[in-house]
Design a protein around this nucleic acid. Sequence first.
DNA 1: ATATAATATTACAGTGGTGTGACAGGAGTA
DNA 2: TACTCCTGTCACACCACTGTAATATTATAT
Lengths: 236, 236
Amino acid sequence: MSDPTILIVDDEPAIRDMIGITLDLAGFNSMSAETAHQAHVAIVDSRPDLVLLDWMLPGGSGIELARRLKRDELTSTLPIIMLTAKTSEDNKVQGLDVGVDDYVTKPFSPRELVARIKAVLRRSSGTQQDKVIRVFDLQLDPSSHRVTIEDTPVDMGPTEFKLLKFFMSHQEKVFSRDHIQDQVWGGNVYLEERTIDVHIRRLRKALSSIEPTSINYARLIQTVRGAGYRFSVKPA
Amino acid sequence: MSDPTILIVDDEPAIRDMIGITLDLAGFNSMSAETAHQAHVAIVDSRPDLVLLDWMLPGGSGIELARRLKRDELTSTLPIIMLTAKTSEDNKVQGLDVGVDDYVTKPFSPRELVARIKAVLRRSSGTQQDKVIRVFDLQLDPSSHRVTIEDTPVDMGPTEFKLLKFFMSHQEKVFSRDHIQDQVWGGNVYLEERTIDVHIRRLRKALSSIEPTSINYARLIQTVRGAGYRFSVKPA
DNA sequence: ATATAATATTACAGTGGTGTGACAGGAGTA
DNA sequence: TACTCCTGTCACACCACTGTAATATTATAT
């Protein structure tokens, strides 16, 4: 996996720069946003691996953003570290209540910040992203970037892998082509709608290639006419 | 859910028309305003789903309008996409700062514009909080776009799905064909009245197809002679 | 009972959404 | 450089779905 990208959300340019430099030195990619709005746009567009979020954004929108991110299913697994000048227990509790992953109080040392970031990334990658997803004898292992059916490797391109990973981690739910594009390609790429179809086709083809040992796993990728596609264990 | 309405605010008629045509082709309803004042009236009156706002309105009132809309509680959630000829980062930052949801620089391709509009609408519409509707062993799940009877999937077309969803979320109430047409097909299509009957028939057929394990769910769709149809748990 | 209005049912042709193969350009590699 | 793999797009084919008209059936009124 390439270097994780960290989004810094703070209204003070000096803080943003300082943290940015620190993170670069520590081997992270960093990007920054000044407001909650900017941050939300950046998150949807660029899908960072972690967000450093200032508690005290103008308008008190910091915690509001955190709450929104955790509420929305699509961003709820995105790790968030809150930055705050206050040390009061109240805030801490309130922050963790929202579902924030960790908490750093200003002033903090670069070393502490980096350590906490690494810890959170390690924790979240252990539990969330890198967990093997299994459906019957179809296995997808994010960490080794591999898909197997009954322990036989399935050959597919990177895009099909991402597509399958997205579907397998959001089963039994229909996604429009637009939605799929957002999730798999990212928010600021413009595709012909039918392109999705072609990749679906390639994914199905890949899943069928191993057969016919047992069930046809391509059937799990279901077309919902007029609505989009769905990964489902139940028959269509 | 009918087509979203987009308000175009630009002082140049040519631009308004061009965008209007683009949006119509993409399946949106569009309306336009020439000045910030007109726009504000239109917003209050017609409550569009999104505003495309030219940055450079005469009198520099574009950004002023954006700020006002975001400040006013009643319109603060209305998504705004700024249009501008400038590519400078300054404007971008300033625009996002005001709370604008996205930013498109002229000249832009119709495809990009439509893609951004869709993305913003998707983002702002929040997570679908659609809950599963259940009547006895008949279940309709909007998020997976599925209808099941005793966990057996029921096959039906998109229109029948919408029809059933409408009925199940408005039980024990009679609806005229006109009303059903408005709700399921949308307001601006002309249908032969009998067409509704045919879809009712198709829906009943689909609901009967799973049987005969227990009750006949087609009976829940009741004909009310001279008035319309009704979804009811009680016998007719 | 018969007539009449309202609804049910069937059949059908047009359309739009999706599946599929082919292709050219691009990114990465040897 | 030549090669390979991958990607996005197009063009064509196919079929599920749609709306309508025509016919059959049922309910209400005379």
